[in-house]
Amino acid sequence: MLEIKDLHAGFEGTEIVKGISLTVNKGEIHAIMGPNGSGKSTLSKILAGHPSYEAMGGTVTFMGKDLLELSPDQRALEGIFLGFQYPVEVPGVNNAEFLRMAYNAKMARQGKEELDPLDFDDILDEKMKLVGMDPKYKDRSLNEGFSGGEKKKNEILQMAVLQPKLAILDETDSGLDIDALRVVANGVNKLVNQDNAIILITHYQRLLEYVKPHYVHVLSKGKIVKSGDKSLALDLEAQGYDWLTPIPK
């Protein structure tokens, strides 16, 4: 599904991702862990097409297409979803209306009929129940004044509405209380099936108790320094990252 080959990428000429290769197949859950500033969010934004970041080398193929050639909205319509580490607030844009716009963009792409606010409301109600969100958040402005945890839940709600093929969740578990964490994990588990895949970026073993990754990768200084199964996450929890980081020469 997703094939990253020797990807170099960064920001205003500074290389932050320094040669990453990663293959994600349908039905797989990958966890990416690693110290602060190691390039996890940068990698996720490069995949989603953030205009401030540029690919400097390597290739990314998604469902047979050259991902780096596509605009952010095209990538989303191909089935990529990024759950942001820091979701932005968009004042004046109604949350439900925003979700309907995104949903209808997907419908239009698939040649299906777009939904009017009433019909969409039914879908939205169901999804909100799924992620345990109060219907009152429908009428709020997108993320405006949401608490940290509410913003994260709203990301999961968007994922549930859009049902992407590949979801990249950047620290969606950070800042969540125990109940919310369970809800998020639940949402993630409901999303995974043989046809789609998830990349979880996280600092905590906690989430991985609910969502079982098939692979765990450790990112350090822009490189994947170790990959393993879920036991790697336990080792990291116990020992930290020091033993993995390459000793400077």
């Binding site: 605009s71 952010p72 909205d73 979701p87 792409r109």
Partner: peptide, 9 residues
């Protein structure tokens, strides 16, 4: 970018 990343043109 946030809106675009949801498939909105």
């Amino acid at each position: 970018f946030y809106l675009e990343s949801r498939g909105i043109s």
